[in-house]
Amino acid sequence: MKAAVCQHGDFTVQDVPRPEPGPGQLLLRVVRAGICGSDLHARQHADQLAELAGELGYDTIMRPEQQVVLGHEFLGELVAYGPKTRRRWKKGARIVALPMVRHHSGVHMVGFDVHSPGAFAEYVVVQEAFAFEVPKGVPDDVAAFTEPLAVAWHAVRRGDVGRRPAIVIGCGPIGLAVILMLKASGVKTIVASDLSPTRRELARQCGATVVVDPREQSPWTAYKQPGPVGSITEYANFGLNAIGTMRMVPLLPWGRLVRFGDTIGASPVGPVIFECVGVPGILDGILAGAPLLSRIVGVGVCMEPDTIRTVLGLNKEAEIRFVFGYDPQEFAHVLGLLASGRVDPTPLHTGTVGLSELGQAFADLGNPELHAKILVDPAQP
């Protein structure tokens, strides 16, 4: 089969053996594959990625000198079953799957090591237990977004926004996906901040209610804050006024009233901020500028060591939650959202290339004015 093989950061289209499905596995003919930011990192920082993965217990992540087929976001047609499979779908069924397979040597991440070639190829092997049939009527270019939107849905779920405003810092593909999922979950105020005019326009199309250029307007003041959380002095004045008023009433159980306000969500609270840039300094900048009592969700992948001034977080009682991946239920839920039409990822899709154009596509993705998300069609010349 044809595959785009990555070695030392360069892509070459080669004839390689077609993978064979093992126990509990399926063989898919790749229809579409998405280029993810993680693929960009893997191509440029393979050694660094492997070292970090080793600390987390993954000991088979690619090295620059190895020949690896990337691609972990994909849609495929079912070609063959391996042994010990339930064979629940007919051949030709359109399948999306979590990019993780199990071999004798352990569990492997599809598209990130030599033991589990990815979908920048004509065929890919997936685990049947992690595979889902695409409902009829869902276009190929939409179904191919299931995996990256599952990442965004997991981030939104972990963010637990509720009735709070949401602020998205960085409107690259993952930031735009987060905006789509915030809109789908019913968040009323979605502030999007990005330096790129093209990405700001895409943020509007994806459902952002307020869009700002941070060079001209602060995302922290671009919306009406629902409480006295703009500064420590504002918050202190609110407390003095509120407690002072309650304590003027004899025998009023003011302490219990305060706790009751916390329980029902009536106490002041800051926004939920999604950091979708992944560049050193962004987190510290958020801590410096964000309102009090904010929740920060770390979504962007930063490959470099970073520094934050914890005293900022302490004084503002900021909360930081880092997120990674998704679970099978979240993956299936996103597929259902796509099938129902509640989520439309087409604004993100800015180009489709063949295997021979992959190197140029990776380069083009470095320019935010050119592309947001590029899909790969292995059948395209």
Rank of each mutant, 00 (worst) to 15 (best):
13 V>T: 15
192 A>P: 03
118 G>A: 05
222 A>V: 13
101 V>Q: 01
179 I>C: 07
294 S>I: 09
51 E>G: 05
306 D>F: 11
130 F>L: 10
142 V>R: 07
236 A>H: 13
183 K>F: 00
67 Q>L: 02
112 F>V: 04
219 P>G: 06
43 R>S: 03
300 G>Y: 02
201 E>I: 06
93 A>V: 12
145 F>G: 05
72 H>F: 05
39 D>E: 14
102 R>G: 01
85 T>G: 04
365 L>M: 15
367 N>C: 06
345 P>S: 01
374 I>K: 00
360 Q>E: 14
23 P>Y: 06
265 G>V: 15
364 D>C: 03
283 L>S: 07
353 V>H: 03
363 A>N: 09
265 G>K: 13
373 K>L: 10
292 L>S: 05
30 V>H: 06
272 V>S: 04
74 F>T: 14
138 V>S: 09
341 G>D: 12
55 E>T: 14
251 L>D: 12
118 G>M: 02
343 V>S: 04
252 L>T: 09
85 T>C: 12
206 C>P: 04
20 E>T: 13
124 V>H: 04
10 D>P: 00
104 H>M: 05
13 V>A: 05
297 V>S: 05
263 T>Y: 10
186 G>L: 05
101 V>S: 00
174 I>H: 01
54 G>S: 11
9 G>I: 12
35 I>L: 05
223 Y>E: 03
249 V>E: 08
46 A>R: 03
305 P>V: 13
180 L>H: 02
112 F>M: 10
180 L>N: 09
24 G>P: 00
334 V>P: 02
254 W>G: 08
50 A>C: 12
252 L>H: 05
36 C>A: 04
123 Y>H: 14
329 Q>W: 14
19 P>N: 10
254 W>Y: 13
307 T>W: 05
341 G>K: 08
285 G>P: 01
282 I>V: 15
41 H>K: 09
39 D>W: 10
127 Q>L: 10
187 V>T: 15
234 E>V: 06
84 K>S: 06
353 V>F: 01
367 N>Y: 00
303 M>T: 14
78 L>F: 02
157 R>L: 12
258 V>G: 03
268 P>W: 00
170 G>T: 13
143 A>C: 05
273 I>T: 12
112 F>R: 04
361 A>G: 05
100 M>I: 14
244 G>I: 14
310 T>V: 13
157 R>D: 04
169 I>F: 00
346 T>P: 06
98 L>A: 07
373 K>R: 12
